[in-house]
Simulated scan of single mutants.
Amino acid sequence: MTIANKELSVEQREELLSALKVRFEKNMNRHEGVGWAKVEEKLLANHDKLWSLYEMESTDGEPDVVGYDIEKDEYIFYDCSAESPKGRRSVCYDREALESRKNHKPENTVMDMAAAMGIELLTEDEYRELQKLGNFDTKTSSWVKTPANIRKLGGAIFCDRRYDTVFVYHNGADSYYAARGFRGSLRV
């Protein structure tokens, strides 16, 4: 559910904070040494970031804290759903790829959705870091930020986990599949 004015109601904010806190406490291995009170304080002071987390949550991303950047004083959230977020699948990589399709165009693109949500697409390195925290995308796959030289040639890359190994693959940027979405990151 996308909210047009990027403002959450009190009820939506409380519901989101409750879900984030439960997930945070259930998965302490993702953020050892980080306390919820400080995270919540940062969230309440950044309504735009809270809205972006709401978007991540409402598309089944299950965002959670995966790190803290001491230099920038920012908590780092990634989508931590077991499989690629359901509300972000069946999309090609970017607007150029979408416009190049002649038939059967998907409704949206990874890059457009991420921008609208106010999040960044995970890089390959970030995806690999996520995989150190659990087993993700064992049945699905997720687009990751594609290097410019690959994208310039019409391709895009995606990752998944099979055989207890993280794989990086390529596809035409205009391709899309029901089992491929994307994971995002957000700094608060």
Rank of each mutant, 00 (worst) to 15 (best):
M1T: 14
T2H: 15
T2A: 05
N5Q: 05
N5V: 03
K6S: 03
E7C: 09
L8W: 00
S9P: 08
S9M: 02
R13K: 08
E14A: 11
E15W: 08
L17G: 03
S18T: 03
L20A: 04
L20P: 05
K21D: 13
V22E: 13
E25T: 08
K26L: 15
K26I: 07
N27A: 03
M28N: 14
M28L: 10
N29M: 15
R30Y: 11
H31V: 04
H31S: 00
E32Q: 12
E32R: 15
G33H: 02
G35W: 15
A37W: 13
E40L: 02
L44Q: 04
A45E: 11
H47N: 14
H47R: 12
D48Q: 13
K49M: 10
K49G: 01
L50M: 01
S52H: 03
Y54Q: 05
E55R: 14
M56C: 02
S58L: 08
T59F: 13
G61R: 05
G61Q: 07
G61I: 00
P63C: 01
D64G: 04
V66R: 13
G67A: 11
Y68C: 00
Y68P: 00
D69W: 09
D69F: 15
I70H: 14
D73E: 08
Y75R: 05
Y75Q: 01
F77G: 02
S81F: 09
E83C: 00
P85F: 02
K86T: 05
K86D: 09
R89K: 11
R89E: 02
S90W: 08
V91Q: 04
D94W: 04
R95C: 07
R95N: 07
A97W: 01
E99G: 09
S100Y: 08
R101N: 06
R101H: 06
K105W: 03
E107A: 06
T109F: 01
V110S: 04
M111K: 15
D112P: 09
A115G: 10
A115R: 15
M117Q: 13
I119P: 11
E120L: 13
E120I: 09
L121C: 03
L122V: 04
T123I: 01
Y127W: 10
R128K: 11
Q131M: 06
K132M: 00
K132F: 05
F136H: 05
D137Q: 04
D137I: 01
K139R: 11
T140F: 02
T140W: 09
S141T: 10
S141A: 08
V144L: 07
T146G: 02
A148C: 07
N149D: 06
I150C: 03
R151S: 10
R151K: 13
L153C: 08
L153K: 15
G155Y: 14
I157T: 08
R161F: 12
R162Y: 12
Y163I: 10
Y163T: 06
D164E: 09
V166I: 14
F167W: 11
N171W: 04
G172F: 12
A173N: 14
D174E: 11
D174S: 05
D174K: 15
S175Q: 13
Y176M: 07
Y177N: 03
R180M: 06
G181M: 07
F182K: 03
G184Q: 02
G184Y: 09
R187F: 03
R187H: 10
